[in-house]
């Protein structure tokens, strides 16, 4: 592997914000061994940070320490290096020590978002969910546009069966990324867990509607298989019991629910028509016919 291609690959990882720790570590080690970080110029520091994170991921603390030392020598009081130091500590130290480290940093600069987030993640890991949620709420009240934060909040709430709160957090995430079908899917599934069938059905259908490339003849793939399954599960319940469904969000059941149910059945079965799917198709169709 040439040095040049390794560097190029690493730069593209950085640009695309992709983690790829194993690969980053392997490539980064080549660069580090060649001692070329010095003549990388400004890029070199970003590379060291990337390699340190990857090294912690794959458990090579020694390499991470090497990178961290170079970075600390250059930028001693940089908040970004502080975060890296914190992550390094999280890898080996006990959470309470890390927590006090973060507390100290936050006392000096209360508006450091990255450290604030790390602290919340440590709190969650410790199982102090109440404190984590409280902190996360305060964090999101200040930095509203952090989609990751809202998703994390939704995740914490969902893990405690507080689906209503989870839906509220997800609705903020949806407002921030209205173009992401995966957020819609998560919203739909959370609504399904909360028992709000009509809302879940609508949201599953939105996911399908967003998938423009799929049409009548195509076999559903990836996210749309999941969305069709979700639709089917919802319509099954809605068709089975004609009683009015209670929906916390006052969503009405579609008038042509029967048609939607038929379509969902058809689409789910289509999803199992490929070479791999054909074995399970019988199982699925048996489940479909069982009312």
């Amino acid at each position: 592997m040439s040095l040049q291609s390794a560097l190029q690959q690493l730069a593209s990882f950085r640009a695309n914000n992709s983690r790829e720790s194993q690969e980053t570590f392997a490539k980064g080690l080549v660069v580090l061994k060649a001692g070329k970080t010095v003549n990388l110029g400004e890029e070199g520091w970003a590379f060291l940070e990337q390699l340190a994170l990857a090294a912690i991921d794959v458990g090579r603390i020694d390499i991470a320490d090497q990178c961290l030392k170079q970075l600390s020598d250059k930028f001693d009081d940089s908040p970004r290096v502080d975060v890296l130091r914190g992550i390094r500590m999280e890898a080996t130290q006990s959470p309470s020590i890390v927590l006090s480290f973060y507390d100290e940093l936050l006392r000096i600069s209360p508006s450091n978002a990255a450290i604030w987030k790390r602290r919340i993640s440590v709190l969650r890991r410790l199982g102090k969910l109440e404190k984590a949620v409280e902190d996360l709420n305060e964090y999101l009240d200040t930095f509203y546009t952090d989609v990751e934060g809202w998703l994390e909040l939704a995740d914490i709430h969902a893990s405690c069966n507080q689906y209503t709160y989870a839906l509220q957090a997800l609705s903020h995430a949806l407002l921030l990324t209205p173009q992401n079908p995966f957020t819609f899917l998560q919203f739909a599934e959370t609504a399904y867990s909360a028992g709000d069938m009509p809302l879940a059905l609508k949201m599953f259908l939105v996911v399908i509607d967003m998938n423009e490339s799929e049409d009548e003849d195509a076999i559903p793939l990836g996210i749309s298989v999941r969305a069709w399954w979700g639709t089917k599960l919802c319509t099954r319940q809605l068709v089975a019991s004609s009683a009015t469904h209670n929906s916390q969000s006052n969503t009405s059941v579609p008038k042509n629910i029967k048609l939607v149910d038929e379509l969902a059945t058809e689409r789910v079965l289509t999803a199992y028509s490929g070479e791999q799917g054909i074995q399970t198709r019988n199982l699925v169709s048996k489940w479909m016919s069982r009312r």
Partner: peptide
């Protein structure tokens, strides 16, 4: 709401309506 009329849009897309 984008989901207001979504079932009809999906049904139309798949030729059911």
């Amino acid at each position: 709401w984008v989901g207001q009329d979504v079932e009809n849009r999906v049904l139309r897309k798949y030729g059911k309506l």
